[in-house]
Design a binder for these strands. Structure first.
Lengths: 146, 146
DNA sequence: CGAATCCCGACCGCTGCGGTAAGGTAAGAG
DNA sequence: CTCTTACCTTACCGCAGCGGTCGGGATTCG
């Protein structure tokens, strides 16, 4: 029950983009440095985020990435699903699949708790936006004013 | 963010034992059949459960395993922690470790959501007992009466 | 043109999951 | 007392997926 670095790094990168929102496209190298993710790896992570329409990319010189929507309109759950797949602590309680993915005996007494768990996770992730995170962050990067 | 089969099978086995509670020790073979877990693998899973004091074993002929406590007093969270380790969707929000396991830059804006997530998971798992599961189970095994 | 930058697929070591195998040890049956 | 049952323990092993790296191609700005 760990979130992989895909989810961790993906969210960090999106938080970076949220802080820079409105300043035009930011190159990978800048995002990588700000979010402390290896640039070569981050490049891979941006691909699914772009395909999912969460970020838009600009190619060529002075290109880069930026959020497709303002930070208030991007739920953490969206990013999570793109990076980690459908939210499900167990296959038999997948979000997408139908109810009866559980061909189990024993009346699936255990399924009850996995369902509650999934709903609980969904609630947390979908009720938080990028704007919430940058607003509540303890220190917004401790940058010296010029 | 998947629960491994250790957690899944471990909980299933404990539910089986909860149903048989009060009938004395049940041999591995019976538990394995009832919970649909390979007996050789289940044997490995019982070891940590015994060491954690959740089950007691009786050796020799007519031996087996039984719950150490009545099902109402066994929280799913206890079983989970034994099988899967401390509850933490991310290392920086481990239950055991101190607050400052997060030597991260960017003020850890993301940590907020992982903390909320962890607390939410803990709440679900610790507020459910084995007795709850067998009480709410859709069908208690569909056994024909003799 | 050429430099910056995104785009994309191939590759690769490592860890941990999921499970098997085999032998050792304790305790009750007869 | 010995045989059988059943738990106890360690060792092993294939495999998938994580966590990256590398190299080359396409696109746009100056």
């Amino acid at each position: 029950m760990k979130v992989s670095t895909r989810g961790e790094y993906g969210l960090r990168a999106m938080v970076s983009l949220a802080r820079m929102y409105g300043r035009g496209p930011m190159p990978l190298s800048v995002i990588a440095q700000d979010s402390a993710v290896p640039v070569a790896y981050l490049e891979q992570l941006m691909l699914p985020l772009r395909r999912a329409g969460l970020v838009v990319s600009t190619r060529g010189a002075h290109g880069g990435y930026q959020l497709a929507r303002p930070p208030e309109q991007v739920k953490v759950g969206e990013i999570y699903r793109v990076m980690e797949g459908p939210i499900a602590p167990m296959d038999c309680v997948r979000e997408d699949a139908d109810e009866e993915t559980c061909p189990m005996i024993d009346g699936c007494a255990t399924r009850i708790v996995w369902l509650k768990l999934r709903d609980s996770i969904v609630e947390v992730l979908d009720s938080t936006t990028l704007a919430d995170l940058i607003a509540q962050a303890p220190r917004p990067r401790a940058e010296q004013p010029a």
